[in-house]
Write a protein that binds this DNA or RNA. Sequence first.
DNA 1: CCTGGGATTTTCT
DNA 2: GAAAATCCCAGGA
Length: 227
Amino acid sequence: MLILKRLPAKFYGQNTLKLAQKLLGKYIIRIDKNHKLIGKIVETEAYYGPSDLASHAAKGKTPRTKIMFDQAGLAYIYLIYGMYYCFNIVTERPDFPAAILIRAVEPIAGIPEMLKNRKCHPEHSRRVTRPSHGSTEPALSQTEGLTMTKTLTNGPAKFCQAFKIERKLNGLDLKNSRILYLAENPQEKIKPARISQVKRIGIDYAGPYKHKPWRFYLKDNLFISRE
DNA sequence: CCTGGGATTTTCT
DNA sequence: GAAAATCCCAGGA
């Protein structure tokens, strides 16, 4: 049985780069129209401070980026390429702009609903069977035996589509929201050796900051956006 | 397997 | 007016 506890407010007070790693293996829970969608975070990217040229906040506080300058634990959701959304968790103190982009999750529960939200029929996607985890992993009866699609949530915009995360949720406080929040399984620990730290994706415009190794992912997880 | 281009609209210059 | 923290599909090897 999977027991999930909401992450406490103090969790969000950690340094952004540390938090981006601590978020790996944590769960995102989304309640939408009586459906409970759950995903395990497997890939993150940190956008860190006013001088990070990859960050939207590099151009200062604007109507769009003001959430990044707000308190830790808020949701920063923005439209990208005119048609997709990306979801971030705001970090650090007010007026120090920083956030962590959720780049990929592993679908855990509510998968039929995610497929509907993504508007793709199961047989249109490549099917994979869930890997059997080691004994440290609890049995997940809801997903055990199910076939899942590898491409359902393995990208920042795919994840948002599957979890119905849209602009109206921008600014939501993840620390107390009932419809979108983060949680952990207290028995589940991620060893540092399981984490890869590499360069961020899709930020060629960021000058020297494009080489910062601020992307983190769980090695050997099937639902990573890219190696 | 890989590469290239189109979709679509907000945001800030 | 240009660019964008992306995705998907088509076409070639």
